[in-house]
Design a binder for these strands. Structure first.
Length: 816
RNA sequence: GCGGAUGUGGCGGAACUGGCAGACGCGCUGGAUUUAGGUUCCAGUUCCCGAAAGGGAGUGCAGGUUCAAGUCCUGUCAUCCGCACCA
């Protein structure tokens, strides 16, 4: 009879079919006394199709969640292991052509397929934005922020992607281009926009990074620190000669202010417009600033013809406009201290502005001429009453003096800016406000939520929101005065959805509140969040902010969303990052179709440790398919050798003992990997060794050992290869789900090797080896080592200087 | 420039607390099965010398500590990632 062959397509489709409507697989019971474990995968952006980089994310999270479940935890793992998308499921996403088609025709289908959540997974956050229930709570949160002045509207220069025809947040601008269109330069436009005041939480976001130390990757924390960009200094008002105006400048080095020989405004600074005649030149500078690589621009400036007054010295210094001064940082104006700042030095040298040193090195004299700026701390000199101080003392005293005399103060500046959430897109949660000519901006009352999107929308694809052309949507009565008013046509950034989606998972069907706080208290903070590092300063900072806001609103108690974060490495192909432009993106569909989901995910766990980059090769996946086939054939052909009832146990064979030893060693190894480092590559390697051992000893195995080995092998593979293990489990006549079984335990006694192999070295070089009983004492080891033939040959005519004995491990004889 | 990481066979990687460098897989070589190809099974595979036994070298590079270093220390080189006229 031909042997049963492993057919991944047949097996995976069969189980997928059986499982897809089984809600019990996902049942969550917070009242259970089991310990809780919340695993969350940080899902990819809705770029259309899933690719194998995303699959890696699922493979890691799934394996961990299933393991935890088998170890007796109550697990909340919303992505679930069947969500990786067998071909049929993914088709709906792939065929997406246009937001409207997709949203309106496929939403019902998508909901059916993912009905376990009342809104969908993050990888389709667009769906979330089409779900009225999710709109409702997004809008509810927005209104609470509006009440607390955490949401506000202002006219601002914003990043505009011509391709998306919408506004982008700073975090969404990558190398001057849109994060979704890597080759489309972002333009600057001045628009009336909604912002969320993330800066109000800048200090807390920065401070609480400390609580994440060691639990989140250093790289992510470093990026966040950098992004928040706190710097301490002082804000000092320079007067304007011949007017009452003032120019506040921010500096971290007030101690150098006596060396200030100019004040330089950013081109986009409001005063620039007033003080400069050459509007065209200023315009060019603003454009160049947003377009080119900042480091590359040659410093340029225009003298305004006006003068500023240094409030400390009373000195008159020229006011310039400089293309290297950014409006977005500090106050948008600087004092130029060429002697102590390299950028100022370059600028002032170019335009012949005076250079005046006022800080001398701790071990030297004040420089008379400078090759470049002296930027270190030192001792002040020629700085009036503050002369002779260290830079640190001078900074403190001078800032205090400015405060006392009303021309400045100690100040902290952040690089992070408020989060612009307005989008001129169709999809996205409508911003729940109404513009009334009489009352101004009026919030939509809570009981009228959700404001939902209209269906009949013409897509122009350009310019303003398509919603503006839908009168039924736009024209409303003002909630306050009842007169004619217009709805806000902007929708929210979809990052709003992803900022709190994982809370809703805990209470997805709640229609009275975003979620029940008791459920949140049970599950939060998330024990383990897993995802790609590309979210470091986008989603991961927004969701931290959102959590803190929710805490202040009083709907959650936790300060941080995720206790632990794991960032998996990228999947690369032929040494290069997968990207659409290179055409080397491998879709999950191709993978599941050709090799199966089990093999695909298992390869990604096997080929490299999860935090490292992974090079994808077809031959590598084929190796895993081969391995799964090897397991499948071994299990299926040995099922009829399982013990019959009432059968007397046979005596253990030598093969039995070998297999049992390996089996228990491997269980120990895999358990350890799950509990500590998640190096699933070594776990899987160990399971492969076990299978090799099973093949080598197959003929000798007795029924009882076959039973134990098959059961534990299948259970151990369960977290890595859900479908094929479930199929084998059933064929073995076992009931229930593999990942609801208890995780196999190991027996140290059985795992122990028959004897200790002791290596014998002469002068640290391996020369021989011997097998001894465990615990053989030092004297005996030494004697037996000296008696060894090969060792004796190396000892001939030499003097023994020293002998190092490590019991059960080695004997090293040092000779001269 | 600042910050984070990484350097081990032909390749992906293993060696977790200093103690057999190269587990496991890919690729390659040979054998068995097969009409053949494929599949499957078995064996070999760091490099150099050697028919073999065996010997020598070897974890980016240079030093150091140690009976013993891929692992610890000092220096150095290279690569990757993130941030960057941030005042």
């Amino acid at each position: 009879m031909p042997e049963k062959q492993y057919d991944h397509r047949e097996i995976e489709l069969k189980w997928h079919e059986r499982w897809k409507d089984d809600d019990s697989l996902y049942s969550i019971d917070p009242s259970s006394s089991r310990p809780k474990y919340y695993v969350l995968e940080m899902l990819p952006y809705p770029s259309g199709t899933l690719h194998i980089g995303h699959l890696r994310n699922y493979a890691i999270g799934d394996a961990l969640a299933r393991y935890k479940w088998m170890r007796g935890f109550n697990v909340l793992h919303p992505m679930g292991w069947d969500a990786f998308g067998l071909p049929a499921e993914n088709a709906a996403i792939q065929n997406k052509r246009h937001p409207r088609d997709w949203t309106l025709t496929n939403i019902a289908e998508m909901k059916r397929q993912h009905k376990r959540m009342s809104f969908s997974y993050d990888w389709n956050r667009e769906i979330a934005t089409c779900e009225p229930e999710y709109y409702r709570w997004n809008q509810w949160f927005f209104l609470r922020m509006l009440e607390r002045c955490l949401a506000y509207r202002k006219n601002a220069l914003v990043n505009w992607c011509p391709e998306c025809a919408t506004v982008l947040a700073n975090e969404q601008v990558v190398d001057g281009c849109c994060w979704r269109h890597e080759s489309t330069p972002v333009e600057q436009r001045e628009l009336e926009q909604w912002f969320l005041r993330i800066t109000a939480y800048a200090d807390e976001l920065l401070r609480d990074i400390e609580t994440l130390e060691g639990r989140w990757p250093d790289r992510v924390l470093a990026m966040q620190r950098n992004w928040i960009g706190r710097s301490e200094g002082a804000e000092i008002d320079f007067g304007i000669d011949g007017s009452n105006g003032r120019i506040p400048v921010f500096t971290t080095r007030v101690d150098t202010i006596y060396g200030a020989t100019a004040v330089i405004l950013a081109p986009a600074h409001p005063l620039t417009r007033e003080l400069t005649a050459d509007v065209a030149a200023v315009r060019r500078m603003i454009d160049a600033q947003s377009r080119s690589d900042p480091g590359e621009i040659e410093k340029e400036g225009i003298f305004t013809g006006r003068w500023a007054i240094n409030p400390y010295s009373g000195e008159r210094v020229p006011i310039w406009v400089g293309n290297f001064v950014l409006m977005g940082y500090g106050t948008g104006a600087i004092m130029a201290v060429p002697a102590h700042d390299q950028r100022d030095f370059e600028f002032c040298t170019k335009y012949g502005i005076a250079i005046r040193p006022v800080i001398r090195p701790l071990d030297g004299a004040l420089a008379s001429t400078l090759e470049c700026a002296f930027e270190d701390y030192g001792i002040t000199e020629n700085t009036g009453r503050w002369s002779g101080l260290t830079s640190e003392d001078a900074r403190r005293q001078m800032a205090a003096y400015a405060g006392e005399n009303g021309f400045g103060k100690a100040a902290v500046t952040y690089r992070i800016k408020d989060w612009g959430v307005s989008r001129q897109r169709y999809w996205g949660t409508p911003i729940p406000v109404i513009h009334c000519e009489r009352c101004g901006v009026v919030p939509v009352p809570d009981e009228e939520l959700p404001v939902v999107l209209p269906y009949n929308v013409e897509f122009t694809g350009r310019g303003r929101s398509p919603l503006e052309n839908v009168p039924e949507f736009m024209n409303v009565a003002c909630p306050k005065c009842g007169s004619r008013a217009r709805r806000e046509s902007d929708t929210m950034d979809t990052f709003v959805d992803s900022s709190w989606y994982f809370y809703r998972y805990c209470d997805a069907h709640n229609d009275r509140a975003p979620f029940d706080i008791q459920k949140i208290d049970y599950w939060f903070p998330i024990d383990q969040y897993i995802g790609g590092v590309e979210h470091a300063i986008l989603h991961l900072i927004y969701s931290r902010f959102w959590t803190k806001v929710m805490r202040d609103i009083g709907v959650v108690h936790n300060d941080e969303p995720a206790a632990r974060l794991f960032t998996q490495g990228m999947v690369i192909k032929d040494g290069a990052k997968m990207s659409k432009s290179k055409g080397n993106v491998i879709s999950v569909d191709t993978m599941t179709e050709r090799y199966g989901g089990d093999a695909g995910r298992m390869f990604e766990l096997f080929a490299a440790p999860p935090e490292k980059e992974l090079d994808f090769t077809d031959t590598g996946v084929e190796g895993i398919v081969r391995f799964l086939g090897r397991v499948y054939r071994f299990v299926t052909r040995n099922i009829d050798r399982l013990p019959k009832p009432a059968e007397a146990p046979a005596e253990r064979s030598a093969g039995d003992r070998r297999v049992l030893r390996k089996l228990h060693q491997v269980i120990r190894k895999v358990t350890e990997d799950f509990e500590t480092r998640w190096h699933f590559n070594t776990s899987i390697a160990a399971i492969m060794e076990l299978v090799n051992e099973l093949y080598a000893c197959e003929a000798e195995l007795t029924p009882a050992v076959i039973a134990e080995a098959l059961e534990k092998l299948v259970l151990m593979l369960g977290p890595f290869a859900p479908y094929v293990t479930q199929d084998m489990w059933e064929q073995m006549g076992r009931d229930g789900l593999v990942f609801r079984q208890e995780w196999p335990s190991f027996d140290e006694e059985l795992a122990r090797e028959a004897g200790a192999e002791v290596i014998l070295q002469v002068n640290g070089k391996l020369r021989s080896r011997m097998v001894v009983d465990f615990g053989t004492d030092r004297d005996q080891l030494e004697a037996r080592a000296k008696a060894d033939d090969k060792i004796q040959a190396f000892l001939q005519g030499k003097e023994i200087v020293r002998i190092v004995v490590v019991p059960d491990k080695l004997v090293n004889i040092v000779v001269k």
